[in-house]
Design a protein around this nucleic acid. Structure first.
Length: 459
RNA sequence: GUGAUUGUAGCUCAGUUGGUUAGAGCGCUGGUUUGUGGCACCAGAGGUCGCGGGUUCGAGUCCCGUCUUUCACCCCA
């Protein structure tokens, strides 16, 4: 029997959970402050809901769940000779969610008559991807999504950038960069090349530019059917990474003859004007005409956030999608949202030493167990302390005090209380301060107030 | 899916050209302290060397397979 956790998944110890909650709590606080309400959706969805939304690469990474019962009964021997491509659709109809945006779109369509628009929701849940694990990449990880659906207002995009800066301020992350682009501009470039129907291919190739270099990108596009003439038109875009030209001004001139591009520029301009009015123009926002993003449901502005000086990849990303609810049967509703990758934020904060000192243990008082003699009195004292909202424990076994003290020490419990035979005769408790080792006798009747006063000073 | 890489005590790791009884630190248990933690000292427990096969008189060490870990690519949070 295997007794390890599955590959790409992890166990979290008390301190790790504490730190993860620290991140989640801060994110929640900001989401609430901006008017988002929480929802949750099931881990599993119909495969039809999931597939076809993430691009071919993404679809392959969706975990599929095998049907219950005699799942092979619907397969013919012909299916088996044709291989898994024929068998798979017949034996699996469910999958684990790959992100939170697509299940949310399904939720909106499902509950459209109960919802009011614009609908602002946040959702913090795990998602699963059948990826090869590596640094900052897991098969199970948490996303923290905030989306607004039912409005095209650029206030939403502005608020996304605003929220990112607020969250990072709370977490103490200072060196980061928010990249922004607009899918409409990428579409305009494709149109200028005469390859409007190959937008996806163009996006994927352009996105790799800083990794694999110009030559490889050109080869890839040429392989996928881009003509030499079209690649010559593309060349100035690829040269942008080398030069020091102002990307914004350059692209405006480059796309001046493409009508559809103007909307793309206007949308981004509005966002930047809003940020300037909020005096948020110090937020490290950078226009990156080569930012593409892989998920193919985006249609408007797109973002990606990187933490500088960290080996972890992007920690947040998002964008506007106009047609996501349409595939589920609800037309004309535009949505925009983004997501924090909690696990990557954790890794980056750990790497950069940004976590405050956190203690997973909350016990304030440990009562030493002396066995049968005085047992009921100690139980009653425990109850009294808890009634005063003092976190207290009675050590469960009557082992040696030494062992019980060691337990208190490991758990960083600040006070240990001895109520033994001698103390009971006097109706007192011997209270030991574990930080400095001092001890004093306190009347049993005054024990709760004694800790009530002191516990407050600790906070 | 492609290419590397890792696996030895609860944890982190040593282990020489293949050679007798596989080691250390931390942790754990007990003691110095029969009602007092952290520090120190002393003692002890704990290992199918990932799993399966092969080569050899002999394998933790070499070979093959397999699983696993980590990393890069693809893609992404």
């Amino acid at each position: 029997m295997k007794v390890t956790s599955l590959k790409g998944t992890r166990d979290f110890d008390p301190l790790q959970v504490c730190r993860r909650n620290f991140i989640i709590d801060n994110i929640k606080e900001v989401f609430c402050q901006f008017g988002f309400v929480p929802i949750q959706t099931p881990a599993m969805e119909h495969l039809d809901v999931l597939l076809g939304k993430y691009g071919t690469e993404g679809d392959q990474l969706v975990f599929k769940i095998i049907n219950s019962g005699d799942f092979l009964s619907k397969c013919s021997s012909e299916d088996f000779t044709n291989g898994s491509r024929s068998v798979l659709p017949k034996i699996t109809k469910k999958g684990l969610r790959y992100d939170l945006t697509v299940p949310f779109a399904r939720y909106v369509v499902n509950h459209q008559h109960e919802l009011y628009f614009p609908f602002k929701r946040y959702q913090i849940q795990p998602v699963w991807r059948a990826d090869r694990p590596q640094k900052g990449r897991y098969q199970e990880f948490y996303q923290c999504d905030a989306d607004v659906i039912g409005t095209e207002s650029s206030i939403c995009e502005t608020e996304i950038i605003w929220m990112i800066s607020e969250v990072f301020k709370k977490l103490g992350i200072t060196d980061y960069q928010i990249l922004i682009n607009n899918r409409k501009l990428l579409a305009a470039i494709a149109e200028k090349l005469g390859m409007a129907d190959h937008l996806q291919t163009l996006c994927v190739a352009i996105d790799k530019l800083d990794k694999i270099g110009q030559q490889k990108v050109l080869e890839e596009l040429s392989d996928k059917g881009f003509s030499t003439a079209s690649l010559e038109i593309l060349q100035p875009i690829l040269d942008l990474t080398k030069g020091t030209k102002d990307h914004w001004e350059f692209l405006k001139a480059y796309l001046v003859d493409i009508d559809s591009a103007q909307k793309g520029f206007e949308e981004l301009q509005e966002i930047m004007d809003n940020l300037a009015a909020l005096k948020l123009d110090k937020v490290p926002l950078k226009f990156d005409p080569l930012l593409a993003r892989g998920l193919n449901y985006y249609t408007g502005p797109i973002f990606e956030v990187q933490i500088l000086n960290s080996k972890v990849g992007s920690v947040s990303g998002g964008g506007r999608y106009d047609n996501l609810t349409e595939v589920f049967g609800l037309k004309g509703i535009s949505g925009v949202g983004f997501s924090f990758g909690m696990d990557r934020l954790y890794d980056a904060m750990d790497e950069l030493n940004l976590f405050p000192v956190l203690n997973a243990n909350n016990t304030t008082v440990l009562i030493v167990n002396f066995g049968l003699e005085g047992h009921m009195e100690r139980l009653q004292q425990l109850q009294l302390l808890r009634n005063y909202n003092i976190n207290a424990e009675l050590y469960p076994d009557a082992t040696k005090p030494k062992k019980q003290l060691t337990y208190a020490n490991k758990k960083q419990i600040p006070w240990v209380v001895f109520i033994g035979e001698h103390e009971l005769q006097q109706q007192v408790a011997l209270v030991k301060n574990m930080k400095n080792g001092t001890q004093e006798e306190v009347k049993l009747s005054q024990l709760p107030t004694y800790f009530d006063e002191r516990a407050r000073k600790l906070d």
